[in-house]
Design a protein around this nucleic acid. Structure first.
Lengths: 237, 237
DNA sequence: GACTATCTAGAGTATATACTCTAATAATAC
DNA sequence: GTATTATTAGAGTATATACTCTAGATAGTC
């Protein structure tokens, strides 16, 4: 493999593991057992490495979210979108972690990311539309669909940050893709009230497969497992 | 005002404006026209300043989210919670911006923040319950209420990051509290499908007041305003 | 084999940043 | 007034980090 590609690969790996902020160009070079001079021969600066990684990420997600217009949407399609997006998120997870700082440092990135967000929001919206057409969810006004899409985006892009901040003991490194994909449960939660009777059960079953195995404990709820047989779900205490 | 308090105040101000990452202890001292030595006389290190600011924030939000159990919940209560929480978010907005980094650097903060999150999630869940009791929203199973609460939390804590990253030109400083509070629109969106007929209209009107004046433009949607009179809201294109 | 373009090493630099240390000044107590 | 304590100044330090520069190695071409 070319040195240039090795630099990109190692950077991605180190950024994902330790956060961009904690990985210096010297670290990257040391990790590859090459000299800093060598690294800077291939990249003008650190920003250029990050920018190139972003472009890979962008290309990946754009590919995943290319909604075919010829046929109607199935549940399998929907789950594929979700799985794919979370895979992308996982492979370039450093990016959303330090997003604001990165955008502040690189105007190209800020501008590209803005467009990227717009494309993703449009794709999510389109997915909702096609689910309506397919009779998976009830049709909704454009404005509501738009607001829902934005909420979906917020959940997707920030689920990882939640996981990393919500675990007191665990350090950032110990996150697994399995845990990350529990975000799919949260995304599907948004869709739950709109499901048509015809699809409701199927989607609920699919959703259940992503339910966090160890749910975030709300105080006073440590008994939820032993309470499993209790049918009092009226919610009135 | 005591020097110590001035340090806290200035730190908060500078952190909010420029991000914790971009504000050094030397900057803070210079801003106050005091010496670094003076600053370090009052605080052992930068982390201690941040930790103390977090405790203020925590106290504030805990105060806002103290749900009175004696009486049933009104719409006014609900809007007060939302307004208050977003006010708190605004006043300590530096915190969520660099959250992961801050938690990585200070174990006290990580642990406290974890508990803080749990308390907030419990409070949100309780607010949903009391809305069910008050007949504002339809009763839902415990598990769904929990997932909804988590989504609400994700939207609230990450709405600001979205605003700052979604505007290509604007730099971070130009965010206003008015824009921030448009996040209330997004939070209420989660609740929309669960509203009871008795309250639906009222809540929709309230929600509308927070609708972004310049909505995030989804590509090909620049006509949404001129389309306002069009009653085709079936969502089926 | 000579020439050229590509690649690499590694010492070095400019700047930043969190923090320290000593000495001086102000406030308070008696 | 004097002793003690609290506060402040400001020069200084250790460390880190993004990046540079020069010289040498390697590979491809004729």
């Amino acid at each position: 493999m070319k040195t240039r590609d090795k630099i990109l690969l190692s950077s991605l790996e180190l950024f994902n593991e330790q956060g961009e902020r904690n990985v210096t160009t010297n670290h990257i070079a040391a990790h590859l057992a090459i000299s800093p001079g060598n690294l800077y021969y291939h990249f003008r600066n650190k920003s250029d490495i990050i920018y190139e990684l972003f472009q890979e990420y962008e290309k990946l997600v754009d590919f995943y979210l290319d909604i075919p217009e010829g046929r109607s949407m199935t549940l399998a399609d929907m789950m594929f979108y979700l799985e794919s997006v979370f895979d992308g998120l996982w492979n370039y997870r450093f990016f959303h972690r330090d997003l604001e700082y990165l955008l502040d440092r690189d105007p190209r990135l800020r501008s590209d990311y803005r467009d990227f967000t717009d494309r993703c929001l449009a794709a999510i919206s389109r997915i909702f539309e096609k689910q309506e057409d397919a009779g998976i969810i009830e049709p909704q006004p454009e404005s509501l669909r738009k607001a829902m899409s934005l909420n979906v985006w917020l959940v997707i892009t920030n689920w990882m940050a939640f996981l990393k901040t919500a675990h007191a003991e665990k350090t950032s490194a110990s996150l697994t893709i399995h845990e990350l994909k529990q975000g799919i449960y949260q995304v599907l939660t948004i869709e739950v009230p709109y499901l048509t009777p015809a699809y409701r059960e199927q989607v609920m079953v699919l959703r259940e497969q992503y339910r966090p195995t160890m749910p975030e404990p709300l105080p006073g709820e440590a008994v939820s497992l032993t309470d499993a047989g209790n049918s009092d779900v009226s919610g009135v205490s």
